[in-house]
Computed example of a mutant assay.
Amino acid sequence: MLNNLKDKKIILASNSPRRQELLRGLEVDFEIRLSPVDEIVPPDLKAEYVAAYLSKLKSDAFGDQLGDNEILITSDTVVLENNHVLGKPKTEQEAFDMLKSLSGATHKVMTAVTLRSKSKMITMEDETLVTFRFLEEDEIWHYIKVYKPFDKAGAYGIQEWIGFMGVTKIEGSYFNVMGFPLHLIYEQLKKW
């Protein structure tokens, strides 16, 4: 469908198997190219701007490495609970504390995506509200022990067991919660 991209090379700057799978779902050929970046956020940055800031930071890490026909895609997802960013947990206890705080409540998932070529750059954002039923402590521990959600913002993947049994409502894009708002990416790639 994206015939305008036939002479372009799409570069996905992500090791995330979820983002790779989702981009394949748009029938887009791409290659993975990574450039390490320290994801350090200014302490005075408001929580709702963190995803966009990090997406642009990841894009900027490529500097002038892009070829004339290349389009780079970078992305970042954050979970916001009461305007507080829940990042990726470093320990089981941190994962437990995050999930316990999300239990029985609604939180916001924000994903920002930056598309960049040599001549232009755009960052777009999407947000989705996610509601969890009350999660029992043994359910939370089961999820952490079996699924090891240490690479996921907010310590969960909606596409895993905890999403199947715990999410009661979402308002917005499901794929945004997975970390890639495909509808926005597709619309921008159509115009590129």
Rank of each mutant, 00 (worst) to 15 (best):
L72N: 10
F62T: 11
L22Q: 05
S59V: 01
T74L: 01
E70L: 00
V78G: 06
D38C: 01
Y53M: 00
I71K: 03
F62K: 07
Y53N: 10
Y53V: 02
D38R: 13
L23A: 06
L80M: 07
S35P: 00
D68E: 15
T77Q: 11
L34A: 08
P43K: 12
L26G: 10
N69E: 15
D38L: 06
E70T: 11
G67L: 08
F30V: 01
K58H: 04
I73H: 08
Q20F: 04
R24Q: 15
V50L: 04
L72I: 01
R24T: 15
E21M: 06
E39H: 05
N69Y: 12
D60S: 14
D44H: 14
N69D: 15
L80R: 07
D60E: 15
A52H: 04
I40R: 09
Y49Q: 13
D60N: 15
A52V: 00
F62H: 04
P43F: 05
P36V: 05
K46N: 15
R24L: 12
F30R: 10
I73Y: 09
G67P: 00
A47L: 06
D44T: 15
S75D: 12
S55E: 03
D38H: 10
S59N: 10
P43V: 09
S55V: 01
N69Q: 14
D60P: 04
L54A: 04
E70H: 06
F30S: 06
V37A: 12
A51C: 03
D68V: 09
E48S: 11
Y49R: 12
R19E: 11
F62D: 01
S59P: 02
D44S: 14
F62C: 03
R33E: 13
L45F: 05
F62E: 06
K46Q: 15
E39Q: 08
E27W: 07
P36R: 11
K46H: 15
Y49I: 00
D38E: 15
V79L: 05
L34E: 12
L54Y: 09
R18D: 10
E48I: 08
I40Q: 09
R19Q: 09
E48D: 14
G63L: 02
G63M: 04
S75H: 11
Y53F: 12
I71A: 03
N69G: 05
R33D: 09
E27C: 05
L57Y: 09
Y53P: 01
V28A: 10
R33W: 12
D44W: 07
L45S: 10
D29T: 13
L22V: 00
F30L: 04
L66R: 06
Y53W: 07
S75A: 15
S59M: 05
D76V: 05
Y53C: 01
L45M: 09
Y53R: 02
L72M: 00
R24I: 09
S59Q: 08
V37M: 02
Y53G: 03
L45A: 08
A52C: 01
D64H: 12
S59K: 11
Q65M: 02
A47D: 14
Q20P: 01
G25L: 01
R19Y: 09
L26I: 03
P43D: 15
I73L: 09
L23F: 02
T74P: 02
E39F: 03
S59L: 03
A51K: 08
D64Q: 12
P42F: 00
P43L: 02
L66A: 03
K58M: 04
Y49W: 06
G67H: 13
L80Y: 06
E21N: 10
L26S: 04
I73K: 06
L66V: 02
